[in-house]
């Protein structure tokens, strides 16, 4: 039924985003542990420079794709009634999309200043 991501494509997308997210998580942890103590200026400099903002949006996009495939698998496993299943998948898709859009808007407004 739901073929937004089917069979192999979803599996490959899940692995690809997993590798990318692994890199992002490692970079983030290194940034926290190795850099100077975290403060507002350092934080802002990280996420609002053009490069930082694009990378942040990319990470959230990866999170959205990775999370979608994972959530879809979980729903396909545990939720069998068709109506409930579609409603849940729709809600998850909506939340993920809204989250991504919100991140883009936040960074767009703050990056401009």
């Amino acid at each position: 039924m739901v073929r937004l991501f089917s069979g192999q494509r979803a599996w490959v997308a899940q692995r690809f985003t997993a590798v990318m997210l692994l890199a992002a998580v490692l970079a983030g942890v290194a940034w926290l542990l190795l850099g100077e103590p975290l403060d507002y200026a350092r934080w802002r400099a990280l996420v609002t420079t053009p490069v930082g903002a694009v990378l942040t949006v990319l990470v959230f996009a990866m999170l959205a794709v990775h999370g979608w495939v994972g959530a879809r698998d979980i729903v396909l496993d545990y939720v069998q009634p068709r109506g409930l299943r579609l409603a849940l998948l729709g809600a998850i898709l909506l939340i993920l999309a809204a989250t991504l859009i919100r991140v883009v808007l936040v960074l767009a407004t703050h990056g401009a200043t």
């Binding site: 073929r3 089917s6 069979g7 192999q8 979803a10 599996w11 698998d73 396909l76 496993d77």
Partner: peptide, 11 residues
């Protein structure tokens, strides 16, 4: 086999 259910339910 390339199907969400047939093969790719395996975790």
């Amino acid at each position: 086999l390339d199907d969400v259910y047939r093969l790719y339910r395996c975790r």
